[in-house]
Write a protein that binds this DNA or RNA. Structure first.
Lengths: 354, 354
DNA sequence: CGCGTTTACGTCGTTCGTAACGATA
DNA sequence: TATCGTTACGAACGACGTAAACGCG
């Protein structure tokens, strides 16, 4: 038995039982992969795949069990490499982050600036995408971790560490009727105007929609985007009232928009960071996490990584107060993290793309 | 990184950082081992060992972490082989059992007879030894499992499944003063005679001794052996009164000895079977276990093997009644297993070699 | 006939064992 | 000087890639 054979096995399954595709992904020849699998089957004395003609049809029960164990073996191999890296003096390597637009545009720049000066030899990759795309990237181990907001249901296999909380803001053009309001508009007032906001997650649930519906109102959403800047552009053009993350609003510099704090109008959102379970995180990853969320110390994250389930992770965070983020520079003590214990359950319906 | 390199690493540590010895154990040349370790260090970019001159002095912290992961990798490799074997039609292989004399001599023969007829192609190895020796064999993976009585403190790394309980018997020669007793002797009476019994475990605690001491008596043990047959021989010679497992007494066929049931006189003993955690057990092992202890079904053992600690294992057995064994053929319903929950704790002082 | 797998074969890299060398106590 | 680890080198093995054959839709 060789590590390559196990790697080939995983790649074949990952490629939908297509050996040619697996070979391509492995940057090697197809007959080589084919032969190694055959050798492995011969050595073990069991068929790993059932064949239909010459093609692989499906994986056998034995193959399935072996696949899972092969997977943990390859994970441990990765971990050995990670441990080794962590013991090197000079921290080199790669850090791949998957996140959504709001984080990438408004929150991460300052973190990344500091990170780059600390680790000039770490290549940084920022993958922006939808929650669904990020979920796929991280479970497929294309990225080291995900930063996202709510939508925990997409990240069942990860362990999630809450980083901070934030509210939405309501933005209108300076010449909008609501712009002269002394106080911020109510949901009833907002329901009277066309709304521009983030794309709702594919499963259709949305904490924003729910906030309206709880008051028997139906929001008239005429435009959605993943991108607060795009939304603001169209708000300026007079298409309607924008509802965006407060962090995005804070960036505004006299661009002809008036903003109201949406605190209390809509459910508060929680942004978290999510890792694969059972992986060794390199030192610079711990550092990045702590830069992003100071309460997530290396020790705490390391302990959390060993936790068996999300319950245990949440228990570790019991009593910690999450920052409330209004913008890049404004941090104020915020809501206690108490609700994080049931973070996954209680916020399943909330999938506001952060 | 190659599996061989990890195997070499483990062997070196197992051999006390002696590469030559490791090479011998691996049936390969010493320079080969040396080179592979060097290659591994080069690939990982860390020293696995700190050298004193050319000799290995000790393992580095990085090496220690890597060692542990290498260990789980090799375990999973073994498990893959085991899974593969379990999916073969013809069950071939090897079954290595470590146990003490009483089990090997009085309890296992019938089990092994049946097992051999079911699995003629499985090579059976029975390793007899002291509890300490067995503990070392099973943690070093020289044997598949251990069968022993009490002395749980020696087997911390294993998970233990209780199999049956038994009492001791008092044996005297037919011409002994006690032989004509209508009732069995009391502890006070026994304390008046020289006693012959099993060797006490090395840590000095003994449930037998304790039973006497609780009544402020001091037993006069003049002879100890690991072997009931040896004890009986010397009892026949008139050296004193023997105290052995009832299973051993039941074998007697008019050999000039008189036996009294020791039930109630001494604490009852529990014989268990212990496995390494996180290992896949081959089908025939499950079958052996069920032959030995019918309440330990394959499903139950498999579930127990996944349990994270002994507490969880014991919880699985809650409510099951353990057989009480008086001899090879005599099985009677016995004490409820309730105490098994705290098996490890409450019986730490009991280390009667079964 | 295209797609995908297997078989065949030549090449190259790696591992292994022997032998000689080096260092340490 | 004995023990243990490293270096050097030649032989054997194994993996890989190209090319061709095979089976299936």
């Amino acid at each position: 038995m060789k590590l390559q054979q196990l790697r080939y096995l995983l790649a074949i399954v990952d490629s939908g039982l297509n050996i040619t595709a697996a070979a391509g992904r492995l940057y090697t020849s197809q007959p080589g992969v084919s032969k190694q699998i055959k050798l492995l089957e011969e050595e073990l004395g069991v068929q790993l795949f059932s064949r239909k003609g010459k093609s692989l049809d499906r994986i056998t029960p034995a193959g399935q069990e072996i696949l899972e164990r092969a997977s943990t073996i390859m994970r441990e191999v990765q971990n050995i490499a990670g441990v080794a890296q962590n013991h090197q003096k000079e921290q080199r390597g790669r850090l791949s982050i998957g996140t959504t637009h709001t984080q990438a545009r408004y929150v991460l720049p300052s973190v990344i600036h500091e990170f780059r000066s600390r680790y000039p030899n770490v290549v940084l990759e920022l993958h922006q995408g939808t929650s669904e795309q990020i979920a796929e990237m991280v479970t497929g181990r294309k990225i080291d971790f995900a930063i996202a907001t709510d939508s925990q249901h997409l990240f069942d296999e990860l362990f999630l560490l809450p980083c901070y909380r934030w509210d939405r803001s309501v933005i209108v053009p300076a010449n909008h009727p609501l712009a002269n309001n002394a106080q911020r508009p109510t949901l009833t007032q907002l329901a009277a105007y066309p709304l521009l906001t983030y794309v709702f997650s594919s499963d259709g649930t949305s904490s924003l929609k729910q906030a309206f519906e709880e008051q028997d109102l139906t929001p008239n959403v005429v435009f959605t985007a993943r991108d607060a800047d795009v939304i603001k552009t169209y708000v300026r053009m007079g298409l309607g009232v924008g509802i965006v993350a407060s962090m995005a609003e804070d960036c505004e510099e006299g661009g002809g928009l008036v903003a109201f704090d949406g605190k209390g109008l809509f459910p508060r959102c929680t942004t978290w960071i999510g890792f694969q379970r059972d992986t060794v995180l390199r030192n610079y990853i711990h550092d990045f996490v702590e830069l992003f969320a100071p309460h997530l110390t290396t020790d705490l994250t390391r302990t959390a990584a060993k936790a068996s389930d999300q319950e245990a992770v949440d228990a570790l965070l019991e009593g910690i107060t999450l920052p409330l983020r209004g913008g890049i520079s404004k941090l104020s003590a915020g809501a206690p993290i108490a609700h994080s214990r049931r973070l996954r359950e209680s916020f399943q319906a909330v999938d506001y793309p952060g």
